[in-house]
Write a protein that binds this DNA or RNA. Structure first.
Length: 277
DNA sequence: CGCGCAACCTGTCTGC
DNA sequence: TGCAGACAGGTTGCGC
């Protein structure tokens, strides 16, 4: 499922290919894509506009338009944004929207489960107010430090994994990289967030940054449906240490990786390396 | 405010 | 073999 590394991979590819292009058409094939706005309302904001930059906030992909507005796309679980030099691409059954570009290229949004959306965050009056309640610190920005992480964990009694999944606190971690970061840090996913000592917080901070950086370099994890914007697989799925590895030996100690439910999510961890003290 | 949980979807897996 | 139900998980919204 697309998390920060997958969205960042798509962002980099699109930045190279669509920056400077004008949007010549928006064909919405599934009205859920633009909802609650109508397809006509969304098209009115994007058609004729030029894409001046491609950015990212957590798992949100942002195409900055020359109007100053952001055309935001969220892939949710099974969304794909596919760029092609010619016409629409991707699995015809699941194509939800087709964006035409002035060089003849096409961005095709497909999404089996129909959770993904595209919408406008207007430049006025205050886009930051829109993001403030949704996305927290960017874990690959210099502003993400052990002290900042400690502040986010402080006073919270819920499981530390729930904090990592909360986009309003740390932006971009999902179920895959939360599991991987907790394993790399040697922290049990159900540890009460506020109970971590400063050494554990430091290890967790380092693990989050490291796992995300490695995953970005690997082009993300292609589990189930994820492909990048050129239709290629990532390779991080081959380097996951515990996620999806129930029953396999822990790569560190050899004990058996287990799967339980934490924060309403399937959670993979090592009972020896991640002790809930 | 913090936390848990249902809902949104549909293809695939699991168990009887 | 077939079919019902569980499962997958990012985000929103509601209830306590």
């Amino acid at each position: 499922m697309p998390e920060l590394p997958e969205v960042e991979t798509v962002r980099r590819q699109l930045a190279e290919r669509v920056t400077g292009r004008a949007i010549t058409g928006l064909e919405v094939r599934d009205e859920k894509f633009s909802s609650p706005a109508t397809p006509e309302e969304l098209a009115a904001e994007v058609v004729g506009r030029r894409i001046v930059a491609v950015g990212r906030r957590g798992k949100y992909l942002l195409m900055r338009l020359d109007s100053g507005d952001d055309f935001v796309v969220h892939l949710r679980m099974t969304g794909r944004l596919h760029w092609s030099a010619g016409g629409p691409a991707g699995d015809e059954r699941f194509v939800r929207a087709v964006i035409g570009l002035d060089d003849g290229g096409t961005l095709t949004f497909s999404d089996m489960r129909r959770f993904g959306r595209g919408w406008i965050v207007p430049a006025e009056p205050d886009p930051e107010a829109y993001w403030a309640g949704r996305v927290g610190v960017e874990p690959l920005d210099p502003g993400f430090t052990p002290v900042v992480l400690a502040g986010l964990l402080r006073g919270r009694r819920g499981p530390v994994k729930a904090v990592l999944l909360n986009q309003a606190l740390v932006a971009g971690l999902g179920n895959i990289y939360a599991d991987e970061a907790l394993f790399a840090a040697g922290v049990h996913p159900e540890r009460s967030a506020g109970d971590l000592d400063r050494h554990e917080v430091a290890r967790l901070h380092e693990a989050i940054v490291d796992r995300l950086k490695v995953a970005v370099e690997a082009g993300g994890s292609s589990i189930d449906s994820y492909r990048d914007s050129l239709g290629n697989y990532g390779s991080m799925q081959d380097r996951l240490r515990v996620h999806l590895h129930r029953g396999d030996p822990c790569p560190r100690c050899g004990d058996t990786v287990v799967k339980t439910r934490v924060a309403q999510r399937g959670t993979y961890w090592c009972p020896t390396c991640q002790v809930n003290r």
